[in-house]
């Protein structure tokens, strides 16, 4: 197969960038999208040009490192997959493919298609955990958890932190990411103790990072490679409001 690629090239964080056009040929339909870029990069290296930098690691859709806004869509045209799981058979021979980095103030471009997603880490650091030290915890079967609850928590926990939700959201909102973690821990008995302080701290950090607000377009859910549900966003809204209006900490001005 043959493609025309228009790829965002930007030498560094503080430099301006532009879309550059590359032609590529002899691409197999069984190749993954990133393997296609590997081939492009081999060609560029041969020509002595700087290869296109993009984030990737596990190449099996679980590490969340790969990104790319492909032909106007986060992780490309297919549903429920990451870019590394996208195969060239999803394109037609001769297609022009536009590749851009995730665009958000909170995800500044580092180089070419590589962005800095450390804002997500800082949100988790703000409260996305259960405060238990190693050791001294009860037996795992001491607290039964309904199967459905566990499985719903699992569905939320399956988030890979890739940032596609932010990338696709017209407001660059991180609500789906944040709500997935808030939901997971709010549903499980282990998360109850810090339930309200957690949601408040994580939301505050989310705002501080410069993400937009949610206008419920649900584009995040549609583009999420792990199909995290926007029900989590509603749940986080409820958790937040409950915390504000019912939790004693909130009224005492503690959190």
């Amino acid at each position: 197969m043959k493609f025309t690629l228009k790829i965002w090239r930007q030498a560094g964080a503080n430099q301006s960038g532009e879309l550059k056009t590359y032609e590529i040929d002899n691409i197999s339909s069984d190749m993954s999208f990133l393997e296609m870029l590997d081939v492009l990069n081999e060609n560029l290296v041969q020509k002595g040009e700087d290869p296109v930098h993009f984030d990737h690691d596990c190449r099996e859709g679980i590490c969340g490192m790969c990104s790319l806004y492909i032909n106007g869509r986060a992780h490309g045209p297919q549903r429920a997959i990451t870019t590394c799981q996208l195969h060239m058979r999803s394109f037609n021979d001769g297609d022009t493919i536009v590749i851009e980095p995730w665009r958000a103030k909170a995800f500044p471009v580092v180089k070419d298609l590589v962005v800095d997603r450390s804002a997500f880490d800082r949100i988790i650091q703000a409260g996305g955990f259960v405060s238990v030290d190693t050791g001294g915890v009860p037996d795992a079967n001491l607290i039964p958890i309904p199967k459905d609850t566990a499985s719903e928590a699992m569905d939320a926990a399956t988030c890979i932190g890739c940032g596609a939700c932010v990338a696709t959201c017209k407001n660059a909102s991180a609500m789906l990411f944040v709500s997935a973690k808030v939901s997971q821990l709010a549903m499980l008995p282990q998360g109850q103790v810090e339930r309200y302080s957690r949601v408040e701290k994580m939301v505050a950090q989310m705002d501080e990072e410069g993400f937009g607000s949610c206008t419920n377009t649900y584009a995040c859910e549609a583009e999420c490679p792990k199909e995290i549900s926007v029900t989590n966003i509603a749940r986080m809204n409820a958790e937040y409001l409950k915390s504000k209006f019912t939790s004693s900490d909130s009224f005492a001005g503690k959190s």
Binding site: I143, I145, K147, Q190
Partner: peptide, 22 residues
Amino acid sequence: VNIIDQAVAQGVPFAREYGGLL
């Protein structure tokens, strides 16, 4: 055995049976 206890305490959503046990 401690690892499982630790992970559950952290909120790791292991698969469960209908009775709520792991």
